[in-house]
Amino acid sequence: MDIMTEKEAQKQVITTSQVEHVALLARLELKEAKKDIYVNQLNDILAYMQMLNELDTENVTPTAHVLPLCNVFRQDEVGQHIPVEKVLANAPEKEEQFFKVPRIV
């Protein structure tokens, strides 16, 4: 991703169509009236985050993780599975031993 200049970043605002796009990706159904509220709220959040751009990060390596840890491994050993009744206990719908979902393709 290109790093935005401060000016570009300030111009960047969330539009209604972006809110609709994100809602679609998250499978959220938004009421028309709510869209304006989210546009404003998201723009406020972005504006707040702009403050971070004031920091000089020239010599800071990008953070991939907040913990100062790496290389946490497990050995290749098989453990317990959970019984299929429990696996399907929270399934909204099931058939035989399968989760049943609306057809996607």
Partner: peptide
């Protein structure tokens, strides 16, 4: 032998939803 992020088996086939654990679910 086991999955990438949990210790469920990778064995091919098996009755549906029997090679699973809370992590891979």
């Amino acid at each position: 032998n086991s999955k990438i992020f949990c210790n469920s088996t990778t064995a091919f086939g098996g009755e549906p939803n029997t090679h699973v654990c809370p992590v891979c679910l």
